[in-house]
Structures are given as structure tokens and as C-alpha cells.
Design a protein around this nucleic acid. Structure first.
Length: 700
DNA sequence: TTTAGGG
DNA sequence: CCCTAAA
């Protein structure tokens, strides 16, 4: 009754301005639109490349020299170890997320490292970290010294790898670093790394290095890195040149992927800007269609990709004495985990505070270590502090997928180069950090965290950061422009691989994977007590639905099967693509919002949600016009049902009445309009007919 | 990109 | 809220 009553007079008082719709273009001007470029998943790309490389290497291995054979075993060992470690370590939670991982790995470390590991755990004192560094450095040195022995060398490398891998991909490289070693892969890796360096720089440029002196892990890593850098010679520019028809594609979150043809001249790689133009972004199939690389080996993935991306490069740069400021960022990547269809890579970018290593000034070792070890670069973890501050610790960045098409006869080296180029091109353009909340990009830079909902635990868990190509920005100048010095063993790398294993025509990277270290697990460890922060693990991007954290405290949710598992499981096309795409957090409309909505609809009607949005929710980024439309729909429904059946925050009846009134009015209005038009048309037609008739009549 | 609706 | 066909 009441409703009726309201309805009856409701709209009389309402003023319904007839607002002519401005041309779309005009209306658009209204609102600033941010065009988001597709996000590039450089890391993913790397991962995919790695997978390919791996395949190739496998095929080639038969023919490869003895040294290679030796290496492999070592590698495999390392991988195994690493996996083991990952699961185990969980307990050792370090103060910093980044450090945690390392600490975890350390334990496995056979040599002195075990001790160091403990120290890491305990950590905080810088002195300790130093000691650790030294230790690690020692180890590495030993390897280098032993180099003399071809046989021994490999072995050592193996060890190193194992250890390193646990810690960070980069470390792996260290072993091989020396050109003398003659390891095909490694050299390549080095080259890659160099480029990675570039990339890193670009990335890092954004973020000032701040972090972390705290992480012991970093230090350790640094040491390792150092060794590597020393051992390795820089790749020559000549190496860079390779013409391949390989195509790299990067897919972004939005499912756009980007492809570019590899440039024949490698040098160009160093000039990202030029490449950017080559990129083409286009819409791709939704992620569900993506196929994971057929088979990837762990070591391949981890090593090449990660190592390449950033670790070494950093070293080089620093060594080169690049401007520290420019070098700020180091990127570390780590493959975190695999989901059925996706390979997760965690990266630590200079972006993340955590990942950031000590300032260069501190000491190369320190820097390097941080860079390498920073491996921490896992996912982003968010920590809530009791204060009003929202503490975010970024463990890793989500990186988009990379697609790479490579001819079967392409060499591993060319593949690597291609990847490097692709990555370089992407990075060269400048990276920017994107924010993803509940699977949606947060584009409004002006919103506060509070407004965005980032302060709520619920939301934080779905918060993710992404590295995106910055189309606008000019490529960040890299410190070291001359690549030549960087690549050490490239030539060896260049060696063509046996085609035995057909290269997958296109590697498709999977959705990004993330393993955010599960905070909870970490906490479990006693160590956690120390940390006041509660890390909320945010799997930034990925929801690892599949992998419920088992009791195991392993930080990384890495699948146990890792090594083999690594082979990316072909993505089930129909599999729910849900993993990445999380639902937006539910944000019930407040009464005030409802009121605003009602008011807007009263004025504008029910068919102009965009205008409604602009009028009343223009600054509410989380309310899309679709949301408003949906809300209206529910409001109408709510108003039509008995109050007892309504759920959620009660909406004032008066508002509901207005909803009904407006709904009725506009429905009618629409109908009227429709009728009007029809009538008009009919009338016109009739008139025309009449006229015709008249004319005819007249004529007749 | 918006609308309009179904899921 | 999501997803999409249509416009």
C-alpha cells in the first residue's frame, strides 16, 4: 500500500530533465581514460623460453661435449635439492620475506652454508650477514679456483647450482660463469643475464633502492653473485647478433599478447625503445586457451630465466660502475610454483622494496648479493601493521605470459637471444607497476588505499602488482650501454642445438604463477614470533587454489613433483581460468551510495548507466556502470519483495520506494517513448499514405 | 565502450 | 558480481 501510494505521486515531484545524450565522443572527453597497455609478462616469457631451451638442450645434450654431460647431472642435482629445500625451509621465516626464502634454501646448502643459514635465521645484525657473505663468497671462490680441473669444476658447479638454485636462479650461473668452463648453457645464460640487467635497470629505475640491508639472504646471494660476475666475461657484441625468425609474444593479463619479431641485430636489444615499435598488441584468446609449454625442466626454467633476467646483469652493471642511482633496481626472478596450467614465476623487482638491495655504495658484494639472493623476489606479500599504515611487502611481481615462436632449427642461443630481446624490448620501454586487486587492475592512481580497499585484509589477499610496459615513457636509459663486454661465453652458446627434440613451435607461457609464501605457514615456525608483522600472503595474482598449503611449512607452494612437474602441464583449455581471475571483492552498496544511485536514476533514467556513473560515481572507481546497473536491478527486486526476505544492509524504505517509483516511471517513460515513436512513425506513415492517397486521389 | 540481460 | 551478445 505504502509503495503504491508513493508510486502514485512519486514522480510528480520528480524533475526529470530530459538530458539529451551528448555525443559519445564528447562525453568521453569528460572522463579521463587511462589506457592500459597490455601487461607484459616478461618473466613468463623467460620461463617459457627456458622451457624451450631446456628441450633443446636436452636434445643437444647427446651431442654435447663431456663437460656438458657433467654439468647436467649437477644441475639436476641442484634442482632436486632445491625442491627439497623449498618445502623444508618454510619454517625459517626471516624477518623479511625476501630473506626468508633464502634462509630456507641455505639450510640445504651443504657446506658452510648450513651454518650461514642459521646465522641468517638469526640474522638481523649486519655483521652476521657479512660473515655469511664471506662464507658464500668463499665457496664460490673455491669453485673458481678449482676450475683448473675440468672435472672438478663441473662438480663444483653442480654444488653451487644446487645451493644456488635453492636460493636463487642466478646463483646457478655463477658456477658456469667462467668462460673457460665452456659450458654452453651458462655462457648463454650469462649473456641473457646481461640483458636482464638492462631490464632490471629499467625496472629498477622506478624504485629507489631502499630496502634492505636487513636481509642476510641478500648478502649471501650477493656473494654468490660476485663470484659469478668475476668469473664471467662479458659477452661480446658480436654474440648478440643473430638473426632468427623467432617470434616472441608476451601476453598480458588482459589477455592481450604481444609479439614481435626478433631483430637480427642483437645490439638493438639494448635499445629497447626501437623494439617497442615492433610490438604489436592484440587480443588473444582468453587464458584458458593457452597452452603451457609442453615440457620444461626446472633447471632450465629457473636458471635461464631468472638468472638471465636479472641477476648477473646487476653485477655487471655495478661492476661497470654504473651510476648506482640508475642501477637501483635489481630484478630477481624466481619460479615460484606451478599450477596445472601455469608456471609461476616470482620476480623481485627493484620495485619491491624488499627486493631492493643495498645501495650500491654499500659494497658490491652486498649489492650483488642482495640482488641475487634477493631471490626473495617471490610474490608480493602484504603485511598488515596494527597501525593505520598498510605495510606492503612485495615479494614478487606478476608477470604476463610470453609467447615465443621459434623455428625448430633455431639454436638455443638464438632462442635465448630472442627472449632477451623480447624482454629487453619490453623493459626498455620502461616498466611501470600495475596494481591488481581482486583480479582487476586498479587504474586510478588518485584513490587512496582506503578507498581502494587495499587496507582490508580481505582485499589484500587479492592484491597483486604487475610489471607493465610503459608505452608512454621513454626507455629508461641504462647505465651500461655497451653490451659487448658483458657476454662471456656466448660463442659456445651459439652452438646450434641438435634438433632431436623438436622445439615447440610456440611456447606459450602460462599464466603467471605465484607462490606467495604462505604467511601462515611461515608463522608456524617459531621464528615467526620474531616478526611482528603478519604477513598476509597475497598471492597476488594467482590463486593457488590447487595447492592448498599443506602442513608443510614450505614457503613456496611449489609442487613437490617439481622437477618433473615443472614440465608445464598442458593447460586444460576448458579448465577454469579462474585461477588468476579472482572475483572482485564484494562491496555492498552503502545507503548513501544507494541514495546517490536512486537520485541519479531518477534524473537520468534506467538506460544511461554510464551517465549515472559519471554523475554520481565518477570517483568511485570500484563502481562500474555495470555495477550500478546491477545494483539498480537488485534494488528494484529488493523493493518488490517483502522486507523479511531482504538481506544485507537494510535499505531505507523510502529509498526503496523511490526506486520503485523511478523504476515505474522510467519503465513507463520508456514505453511511452517507444509508443510515441511508434505512434509518430505510424502517424507519419499514415500521413504519408494519406498524402499519397490524396495525391493519387487528386491525380485521379 | 555501453547497454541490456542472463547466470 | 560476472560474462556477453549487441549495438
Amino acid at each position: 500500500m505504502v509503495l503504491k501510494k508513493r508510486q502514485s505521486h512519486g514522480f510528480n515531484s520528480l524533475h526529470f530533465p530530459s538530458v539529451p545524450k551528448a555525443p559519445r565522443s564528447a562525453r568521453r572527453a569528460f572522463r579521463k581514460r587511462i589506457v592500459e597497455d597490455s601487461q607484459i609478462c616478461a618473466f613468463e616469457l623467460l620461463a617459457s623460453l627456458a622451457g624451450k631451451l631446456l628441450q633443446e638442450s636436452e636434445s643437444s645434450s647427446a651431442s654435447s661435449n663431456a663437460s656438458d654431460a657433467h654439468d647436467r647431472p649437477a644441475i639436476s642435482d641442484g634442482v632436486v635439492k632445491r625442491e627439497r629445500v623449498e618445502t623444508k625451509p618454510v619454517k625459517t621465516e626471516c624477518l623479511d620475506l625476501g630473506s626468508c626464502e633464502e634462509s630456507i634454501f641455505l639450510p640445504d646448502y651443504d657446506s658452510p652454508s648450513s651454518d650461514s643459514r642459521q646465522s641468517l635465521k638469526e640474522i638481523p645484525p649486519p655483521a652476521e650477514s657479512d660473515s655469511i657473505l664471506e662464507r658464500s663468497s668463499t665457496v664460490s671462490n673455491a669453485d673458481s679456483s678449482e676450475k683448473g680441473n675440468g672435472d672438478e669444476k663441473p662438480i663444483q658447479c653442480e654444488k653451487v647450482l644446487a645451493k644456488v638454485e635453492g636460493v636463487s636462479p642466478v646463483s646457478v650461473e655463477t658456477c658456469d660463469a667462467k668462460p673457460e668452463s665452456g659450458l654452453g648453457r651458462q655462457p648463454l645464460a650469462d649473456g641473457m643475464e646481461t640483458r636482464g640487467l638492462i631490464l632490471d635497470n629499467a625496472c629498477s629505475s622506478k624504485d629507489p633502492m631502499k630496502l634492505s640491508a636487513k636481509n642476510p639472504a641478500l648478502v649471501n646471494s650477493a656473494n654468490t653473485v660476485k663470484v659469478l660476475s668475476h668469473g664471467n666475461s662479458l659477452p661480446s657484441a658480436s654474440d648478440l647478433k643473430h638473426g632468427n625468425d623467432v617470434k616472441l609474444g608476451i601476453r598480458d593479463d588482459d589477455e592481450n599478447f604481444f609479439r614481435f619479431n626478433k631483430l637480427s641485430n642483437r645490439r638493438k636489444a639494448f635499445k629497447p625503445s626501437s623494439r617497442i615499435g615492433d610490438r604489436r598488441i592484440r587480443k588473444l584468446l582468453s587464458s584458458k586457451y593457452w597452452k603451457a609449454a609442453p615440457k620444461l625442466k626446472d633447471y632450465e626454467l629457473t636458471k635461464p630465466l631468472f638468472a638471465d633476467l636479472g641477476m648477473k646483469p646487476l653485477h655487471h652493471k655495478r661492476k661497470l660502475s654504473c651510476n648506482p642511482d640508475k642501477t637501483q633496481g635489481d630484478i630477481l626472478y624466481k619460479r615460484r610454483k606451478f599450477s596445472d596450467r601455469s608456471l609461476v614465476i616470482a620476480s623481485d623487482g627493484g620495485f619491491s622494496s624488499e627486493s631492493v638491495c643495498n645501495s650500491p655504495e654499500k659494497g658490491m658484494s652486498g649489492d650483488n648479493g642482495s640482488a641475487v639472493l634477493c631471490n626473495g623476489g617471490v610474490l608480493i606479500s602484504i603485511v598488515h601493521s596494527r597501525s593505520s599504515l598498510v605495510k606492503l611487502s612485495i615479494k614478487s611481481f606478476k608477470i604476463p605470459e610470453l609467447f615465443i615462436d621459434v623455428p625448430e632449427n633455431a639454436t638455443v642461443g638464438s632462442l635465448k637471444r630472442t627472449v632477451v630481446e623480447a624482454v629487453t624490448a619490453l623493459l626498455g620501454g620502461g616498466l611501470r607497476v600495475g596494481l591488481v586487486l581482486h583480479g582487476k587492475k586498479v587504474r586510478d592512481d588518485n584513490r587512496t588505499l582506503l578507498q581502494t580497499g587495499i587496507t582490508s585484509t580481505e582485499n589484500i589477499e587479492t592484491l597483486g602488482f604487475t610489471l607493465e610496459p610503459n608505452s608512454v615513457q621513454a626507455p629508461v636509459p641504462l647505465c651500461c650501454e655497451e653490451p659487448p663486454a658483458i657476454l662471456p661465453c656466448e660463442t659456445s652458446h651459439l652452438i646450434p642445438r641438435s634438433p632431436e627434440t623438436p622445439i615447440v613451435e610456440s611456447l606459450k607461457l602460462i599464466d603467471s604463477l605465484n607462490l606467495a609464501p604462505s604467511p601462515t605457514t611461515n608463522h608456524a615456525d617459531n621464528n615467526s614470533e620474531t616478526s611482528d608483522q603478519e604477513p598476509l600472503s597475497s598471492n597476488a595474482d594467482v590463486v593457488a587454489d590447487n595447492k592448498p598449503p599443506s602442513d608443510s611449512k614450505a614457503l613456496v607452494a611449489v609442487e613437490p613433483a617439481s622437477a618433473e612437474a615443472l614440465a608445464v602441464v598442458p593447460l586444460n583449455q576448458k579448465s577454469k581460468r579462474s585461477e588468476n581471475v579472482q572475483r572482485r571483492t564484494r562491496r555492498p552498496f552503502s545507503v548513501s551510495e544507494v541514495e546517490a544511485l536512486v537520485e541519479a536514476v531518477e534524473e537520468l533514467g534506467t538506460g544511461r548507466w554510464r551517465d549515472v556513473k559519471l554523475r554520481s560515481f565518477d570517483n568511485a572507481d570500484h563502481r562500474t556502470y555495470v555495477d550500478l546497473k546491477d545494483k539498480w536491478k537488485t534494488l528494484v527486486h529488493t523493493a518488490q519483495i517483502a522486507p523479511q526476505q531482504r538481506r544485507g544492509e537494510p535499505v531505507p524504505q523510502n529509498l526503496l520506494d523511490r526506486v520503485l517509483a523511478a523504476h515505474g516511471y522510467w519503465s513507463q517513460h520508456q514505453a511511452k517513448q517507444h509508443n510515441k515513436n511508434q505512434v509518430t512513425a505510424t502517424a507519419t506513415a499514415t500521413l504519408a499514405m494519406l498524402q499519397i492517397t490524396d495525391g493519387q486521389a487528386v491525380e485521379a
